[in-house]
Design a protein around this nucleic acid. Structure first.
Lengths: 155, 155
DNA sequence: CCGTTTATCTTGACAGTCAAACTAAAATAC
DNA sequence: GTATTTTAGTTTGACTGTCAAGATAAACGG
C-alpha cells in the first residue's frame, strides 16, 4: 500500500481518504445492524412482528391506504399483505373499509389501538435518536442531518 | 410546547434544536428503511435470504465460530441456526467441522464458495457507501464518520 | 355486451422463528 | 470415581412471512 516510486505527492491524502471511506462503510454497516437488532427487540416486546409494526408505521404516517398502495409501499405482494392485514385486524390494530367508489378496492386504516401502538413506537424511536445523539455537539448534529438527507436523496 | 412564562430566553434556540432532533430522527428512520430495502434486493438477486447472507458476513469477518457463539452473535436460537446452517451447507457456502477438544461443539466456517459470496457482497456494500457519500465534501464525511462511531458506541 | 385490465383473496411450497423436548458430552459434586 | 448438573447441538411442532400462480369479482374500453 506504500508508494515506492514517490511519483505522486497526492498519494498520501488519497490513501487517507480511502481509509475514511472504508471506515465509513464499516460504521454504516455496524449502525444498520445495531438499529435492526434494537428494532427487533422493541417490536417483540409488544408481541408484534417487524412486518406488522412496519405496516402500522406506514398507516400511521399516511392515515389510510388501499391494499394495493400499501403492498407497493412495503415492497411485498398483495397476497402477503392480505394475511398480514388479517392478523393485524385480529389484533384490533387496523380495520378494513370499503372504497367509496371502487368496489374492488379496500381501504386499510389504523384503529385507535393501532394508532396508540404507532405513537408509542414513534416515541421510542425518538428517544433512541436522542440517546444516540446526546454526545454530539450542535455542529456535528447539523452535519449528520445534512449527510443523512443527502444520502437519502442519493438512494 | 411554547414558553408562555417567558422565563427562558433560551426558548427559541431550544425549539430550533428540537426541530433538528425531529428531522434527525426522521432521516435516520428513512435511511434505515432504504438500506433495508437495498439489502433485501441485493440478497435476493443471489438466490439467498437475509439471514443466510448475515451468516456469511459474520463468518467472513470472524473466520470460524462455534454454533453457540454464532447464534448468540446473530440473536437467534441455536435451533434456528441449525437449519440455517443446514441450508448453507447444502448450498456449499459453509462447512461444519468438529471442535478440537470439545466433542459437543461444532465449528462452522466458510467454504471457498461462501467466501467468494461474502467478498462480492462486501464489495457491493462498499460501492453503495461510495455512491451515497459521493456528494459529500471531505469535512462532512469526516463528521459523518465521527457521528456514526459515536452513535455505535452509544448503543 | 364482451374482452381486458385491475384489486383482492386463496392456495401451495418454503424459509425463519421460537420454545420445548431430546441426545450426547463435559464439568462439577460428593 | 460415579452421580448429578450443565452445556452444545439437534429435532419437533406451531406460527409468521414470503412468493408465484390461480381464482373472483369489479371496472373499463370498445
Amino acid at each position: 500500500m506504500s508508494h515506492p516510486t514517490g511519483q505522486s505527492p497526492a498519494a498520501a491524502p488519497g490513501d487517507a481518504q480511502q481509509s475514511v471511506d472504508h471506515a465509513l462503510n464499516h460504521a454504516i454497516v455496524e449502525f444498520y445492524e445495531k438499529l435492526s437488532s434494537w428494532e427487533h427487540d422493541v417490536v417483540r416486546e409488544k408481541g408484534l412482528t417487524l412486518p406488522q409494526v412496519h405496516t402500522l408505521e406506514i398507516l400511521g404516517i399516511n392515515q389510510s391506504m388501499q391494499m394495493k398502495e400499501l403492498a407497493l409501499r412495503m415492497g411485498i405482494t398483495t397476497g402477503t399483505l392480505t394475511v398480514l392485514v388479517d392478523r393485524l385486524e385480529n389484533k384490533q390494530c387496523v380495520r378494513r373499509r370499503p372504497h367509496e367508489s371502487d368496489r374492488r378496492s379496500i381501504i386499510v386504516e389504523l384503529t385507535d389501538e393501532g394508532r396508540t401502538l404507532f405513537e408509542e413506537h414513534d416515541r421510542l424511536h425518538m428517544q433512541l435518536t436522542d440517546a444516540l445523539t446526546a454526545g454530539l455537539d450542535t455542529k456535528d448534529k447539523a452535519a449528520l442531518l445534512r449527510c443523512l438527507e443527502a444520502m437519502n436523496r442519493a438512494f
